[in-house]
Nucleic acid binder design. Structure first.
Length: 216
DNA sequence: CAGTCGATTCACT
DNA sequence: GTGAATCGACTGA
């Protein structure tokens, strides 16, 4: 249960820092998604950092487009993209503004509104799977492109908000290669920018990138 | 303007 | 462990 006193918005300066600082610091924080049917609160357990200009794995690597425009805007806003013809994934833009870096929210624990999340995630076999994976997380929170650009730091009647929760102790943070990103995990591991909470059952399994076979 | 493929998930073997 | 589903952004001609 979340006490009203914990519903303090995270200050925007939190996001106006280099993405590699913000990403591990997000672990353990709370995200409140206000839906028409009520709030769903998620405790973040797994994230990935994407650093626009330097990062071949980032959507912003090749510059601004219609899809990724929000990444080039101010920090603390939500970037949502649509992928594989059926899924959405959610990011939080990090500073400085214009750098186009962001944190992909990969997994978390639903700590409030589980019945609402279950309704959005009928295939989940247990509550631990409700938000175990980036597209599952977005589905559980009823997040789609209509929320692209939402300010997650705004106070008041907002659809998505990041709160100060109990931050994860640094010694519980683990990191490794990003999931599903080409070039990661192999020799080199140029960007071990996936961060998760050690031994948390809601963290998604690691899967290396596999180029899909061409359809016949 | 057609071809390719993705920061994935699910059903099935 | 393997493959299908599904669509729109992006690429290069």
């Amino acid at each position: 249960m979340i006490a009203p006193s914990d519903r303090t918005p995270l200050h925007r300066e939190f996001f106006d820092r280099p993405v590699l600082e913000v990403a591990p610091d997000l672990l353990g924080r709370l995200l409140v998604r206000t839906t028409p049917d009520g709030p769903i609160t998620l405790r973040l357990t797994e994230v990935e950092a994407y650093d626009g200009p330097n990062d071949p794995g980032s959507h912003a690597y090749r510059g601004r487009t219609a899809r990724n425009g929000v990444m080039f805007g101010p920090p603390g806003h939500v970037y949502v993209y649509f992928t594989y013809g059926m899924w959405h994934c959610m990011n939080l833009v990090c500073g400085p503004e214009g750098r186009a870096s962001g944190v992909l929210l990969r997994a978390g624990e639903i700590v409030e509104g589980a019945e609402l999340a279950r309704a959005r995630r009928p295939s989940a076999r247990s509550d631990k799977e409700l938000a175990k994976g980036p597209a599952r997380l977005a589905a559980a929170l009823d997040v789609d492109r209509t929320l692209d650009g939402t300010d997650a730091c705004a106070v008041g009647d907002t659809s998505i908000r990041i709160l100060t929760g109990a931050p994860t102790l640094p010694d519980q943070v683990r990191n490794g290669p990003r999931t599903g990103v080409a070039g990661e995990g192999g020799c080199g591991q140029a960007h071990p920018w996936r961060f998760w909470v050690a031994d948390d059952p809601t963290v998604s399994p690691y899967r290396a990138h596999v180029p899909r076979r061409r359809r016949s």
